[in-house]
Design a binder for these strands. Sequence first.
DNA 1: CCTTACGCCATTTTT
DNA 2: TGGCGTAAGG
Length: 714
Amino acid sequence: MNSELLLKNLNPEQQKAVQHHSGPLLIIAGAGSGKTRVITHRIAYLIDHYRVKPMNILAVTFTNKAASQMQERVADLVGPVADFITISTFHSFCARLLRIEGEHIGLKRGFTIYDATDSENLAKKVLSELNLDPKRFSEKMMLSAVSASKNNLILPEDYPEDSFSEEKIKQFYASYQKKLKESNAVDFDDLIMQTVVLFKRHPNILEKYQKRFQYILVDEYQDTNHTQYILVALLAASHKNICVVGDDDQSIYSWRNADIRNILEFEKDFPNTTTIKLEQNYRSTSSILEAANNIIAHNLNRKAKSLWTENPKGEKIQVYQADSERDEAQFITNEINQLIKKGVRLKDIAVLYRMNSQSRVLEEVFLNNKLPHIIYGGIRFYDRAEIKDTLAYLRLIANPYDTISFNRAINTPKRGIGPVTIAKIEDAKENFGVNYLDTLLRATSIPNLGSKLKVISEFARLWYYFTTYQEGHTITEIVESIWDKTEYMKILENEGTDEALARIDNLKEFLSVTKSYDERTDNMGSLNGFLEEISLITDIDRYSDTSDAISLMTVHSAKGLEFPVVFVTGLEEGLFPSSRALYDESQIEEERRLCYVAITRAMKLCYLSYAETRFLWGQTSYNRISRFIEELPEEINNLSRKAARVTKSANQVATSFSSPLPELRSGDKVLHGKFGKGIVIEVKGAGKSQEVTVVFDGCGLKKLMLEYAKLTKI
DNA sequence: CCTTACGCCATTTTT
DNA sequence: TGGCGTAAGG
């Protein structure tokens, strides 16, 4: 494409960002300011105008979805040479690099990437070996300490030991790392940290990649942690051609150790930085933008910026006060039904919430009202037991050192192997000084196996078979072979319960994942490549706007997306902002940014709702209206809010001041507000749960709950 | 070694 | 509320 054409339809700031040639560049890109457009056009401009070779460009994002979207859009601009640009997430970039260079830091080929559950299982092992009081040192807390260390580039040997608990954490950290290494595995945080360690220990390798990646772009820079910052800084150290794009107002991952200072102090870290602010919003109506601006203005710790738009004013923000979470869901349902009548498509609508558990009621009510919807997040597909079982076998084929997968596979399906036998195998493995597979292949030399010897030898034979079968077969074939030879499928089929059937369905879905991988890689994809891909995938990556359904997701997952209509739910003190944040101003600021992200997803219509009572964690709670709604100026929301109050109080009058329940028996004549006159033909139950069946003159037979149906005896 | 039942627990966001 | 771990029984 002609490089002049690339500048067309860009505003002056965007053009400046695209045309910037070398040296550090900081782009502060407000919500909806055409950020992706600028990055993709900049990449294309580097190639077309400055003649940079595609293979010398590295673009890093946080989600797979952002990466593949970027890849696509760049390909639209520059054509097939886009394949030579490295566009990937931090994690998969590092994973691929470690596949190639890992041996320099003791990682063998085929190393396994442990997900959160695997890490927890490993942590449990370590914890029980260390004999620590599980009340004081839970694996959760230990793991978050380890994660924080890794994200801040603190190695086990650098961990402080100034207090008793620090000492214990240090111990834990060290043996956890030792176990990972023995398993030839890394956890998520290791992917980044080990890459940095590699670069620091082997400057020649770093140099190789510095020469390779002469132009570096980082998306969502506000979400980088310290280790990621170091990684990027190391790669850019020699040429300083680093362009970061981000928005401090959209920093919502500090709990994962994202360091907002990275973006606030970029200019200090990289002298002679060119800074460009993209402040024109192309996404939202000015009402929506004004609401978002008003809320975020309450944050003190931020870069000054003022987002503006030429878009029309549009509808005011709607605020709805619900009686309960059910009422909230019902309101959203009714509103959506109205919108559908006006021609709004379901896929144009998103319902956002603070935490996944809020999706339950919404799902129920949507189901009752037959509203097609998709819930993103929650239980990950790859976390399901049957998928993990299959994955355990695949991982063992790739990595015979993997202790977590070994512990899972050895007794799946049930072979009567428990902790006692496993301990014997572990002992033998230590003595033999080889991996699990080689240990089992010598099972006859393992002492005291007794009657288990047979079944273990059988398992070893199977495992060895899989490792040879792997050569020259597709992932799909390997998986089918596993299910066949272990009789995993057969066992599920024989069970025949609903649960077993659901598991079989999931396995079939898994097969479609392997098939698409096989196709994509021309049946030449490696097992490692496949395992890597699925361990780094998240639920939100499944998001596609092809199916016509309402999207339900957390605000965090919605970052980077946009929808014509957005409902933000649960705006209550203690929920949004979260109760964990209430007493810490910096955490309140993060919640506020989260709210800002939520509102700025909306293009045309934005609804905010809160419930006066909410059934949460097994009990009903009464929360005050969220401060974020109060931070909206009256003229933006006042009208709809008052309207909501009025309808609400009308309901309240109806329910709390209604006359005592009428005593009815069959044959009584009754009057109903909507159905008119009728005759009672049956009365069931007593007191509040009494149910009456009435034949109405106009509309026939109805069953009514006495408590809710406003029936009057006549 | 496995299954079941019970009681206790915590309760966000995820690459 | 429900998910999980423990303890007891099969």
